[in-house]
């Protein structure tokens, strides 16, 4: 599968150190270069200058949540697809993710295959780079 995913810069945002490093190791096993941030604020600071092709972010974090991170990215006009990951079970999270324009919402624990598939989609989907219509169908549900 790694062959199908174009080489790209991936950002991982999660306050849980254990999961953050696990994610980096998984991406590394797929030879996907990734940078990890322990908070949305830290990511946004870096996002000013660096270019990320896709963001994998936790939803619930101290300070800004994953949803607020997407809003902040949109306000900065440097569009990037965001795949949200959450350990929470509430049903309304899907609606919220959809409303704020997340590329996908995945539940922890995640299946690696599913994540890689979404990464591939995000990196190949042209629309992802246009954030002119945040209200449109953006959240993709894994089957």
């Amino acid at each position: 599968m790694n062959a199908t995913i174009p080489s790209a810069q991936i950002a991982v945002v999660d306050d849980d150190a254990g999961f953050r490093s696990a994610m980096l190791l998984l991406l590394d096993a797929e030879a996907l270069p990734a940078v990890a941030f322990d908070s949305p604020v830290a990511f946004l600071a870096e996002h000013e200058t660096a270019t990320f092709d896709v963001v994998i972010s936790d939803v619930q974090m101290p300070g800004l949540s994953g949803f607020e991170l997407i809003e902040a990215i949109d306000r900065g006009h440097r569009s990037v697809p965001v795949i949200l990951i959450t350990g929470r079970l509430e049903a309304d999270l899907d609606t919220k993710a959809q409303a704020c324009g997340a590329f996908a919402l995945l539940r922890k624990p995640i299946e690696a295959a599913s994540l890689l598939e979404w990464l591939h989609k995000a990196l190949t989907d042209d629309t992802c780079n246009e954030r002119d219509n945040p209200g449109s169908e953006r959240v993709h549900r894994p089957d």
Binding site: S21, A29, E30, G87, R88
Partner: peptide, 20 residues
């Protein structure tokens, strides 16, 4: 449940990476 989910999610992810 959420708190417990965190290490479980990490374990799953690490397992996947390891397999690769």
């Amino acid at each position: 449940a959420h708190e417990l989910n965190q290490p479980l999610a990490a374990i799953t992810t690490l397992g996947e990476a390891n397999r690769r």
